[in-house]
């Protein structure tokens, strides 16, 4: 009995962590290139609704996820055009992008409210994925594994490949990179596009895997948590994984406490927990100043203009 509960808690944590991990991986790459895109939540919502719509229209989950990524990229490109081409303020544009995403997703999603689709199934055959104990390892859908693999891939890309080195260089000193002859704007645009694709995918994980349905503001602020997580992880992919699991655990605690009918704490407070944890973690990190500042890309959030 208790093993079953532990296993199901672990599984819930890993699953709840997956969309946060996907979105924050994307944002990590964006921030490493020196761009601060606060529009993660908006891109996630656009991905969630477009993915859902595409799956409703075609019946294919693959089509849904691809459409979600495309939608994320498209939204991100609006951001890229405004901030990179026109040198608009990144913070203001990112906030506007989120508001835009909330509105557009609500508009597109109007006809889908209340509809459901078949959810993303576990990757491996039932013999493994439904096994009472082994399912803790084998019982997940492809994106749970994919997100973990992508974490490793991102870490490898940033530290050990030449494009990764160039990306970091652009984030550390855009003027130096430009002086050497790297196309700063193009590299940043590519990073922003990647961030959009990952946010779109994360959004679709909500609408096609977690709760296979559409509702307004389905992602419920998880985009903000993904943003906080990047800082929490000091821009290191490995720590991103730990952080995502931590937030997954807090979110799971909230669900479990509700399910067990905990009355000692008002449900509103339970719902607050993940966000409260975000605030606490960000505060703690910023108190440890040297650590956080030392690892932030030096050009983060600063517009680059060719002089």
């Amino acid at each position: 009995m208790s093993t079953t509960i532990v296993i199901s808690i672990i599984m819930t944590i890993l699953i709840a962590a997956t969309p946060i991990l996907l979105a924050s991986l994307g944002e990590l790459v964006v921030e490493k290139s020196g761009v601060l895109n606060l529009g993660v939540e908006g891109m996630m919502l656009c991905g969630a609704v477009c993915g859902f719509g595409a799956t409703v229209a075609t019946g294919s989950l693959l089509a849904g996820f691809l459409a979600a990524m495309a939608a994320g990229v498209a939204t991100a490109m609006i951001f890229a055009f405004l901030t990179l081409t026109l040198s608009a303020n990144q913070v203001a544009t990112g906030l506007a992008l989120t508001i835009f995403g909330v509105g557009v997703s609500s508009l597109i999603g109007k006809p889908f409210v209340g509809r459901t689709v078949g959810r993303l199934e576990p990757l491996l055959p039932a013999a493994l994925s439904d096994h009472p104990v082994l399912r803790v390892v084998f019982g997940y859908d492809i994106l749970v594994y994919g997100a973990i693999a992508l974490t490793a891939a991102t870490a490898w890309f940033l530290t050990s490949t030449r494009p990764g080195l160039i990306l970091r260089a652009v984030g550390e000193s855009d003027s130096s990179a430009h002086a050497i002859g790297y196309p700063v704007i193009a590299i940043r645009a590519a990073a922003v596009a990647f961030g959009g694709a990952m946010a779109g995918l994360a959004g679709a994980y909500f609408s096609l895997a977690l709760t296979p349905m559409w509702a307004d503001r389905l992602t419920a602020g998880r985009g903000w948590i993904a943003l906080a997580l990047v800082v929490f992880a000091s821009w290191k992919p490995g720590r991103l994984l730990l952080g995502a699991w931590l937030f997954g655990a807090v979110a799971t605690f909230e669900l479990q406490a509700k399910a067990m009918g905990a009355t000692w704490l008002a449900p509103e407070f339970l719902a607050m927990l993940p966000y409260l944890a975000t605030v606490v973690v960000l505060t703690l990190i910023s108190m440890r100043r040297a650590g956080a500042e030392g690892s932030a890309p030096a050009c983060l959030g600063k517009p680059f203009a060719t002089a």
Partner: peptide, 8 residues
């Protein structure tokens, strides 16, 4: 002004 990247 050198075109160097400090943390690298």
């Amino acid at each position: 002004h050198f075109s160097l990247f400090e943390p690298m």
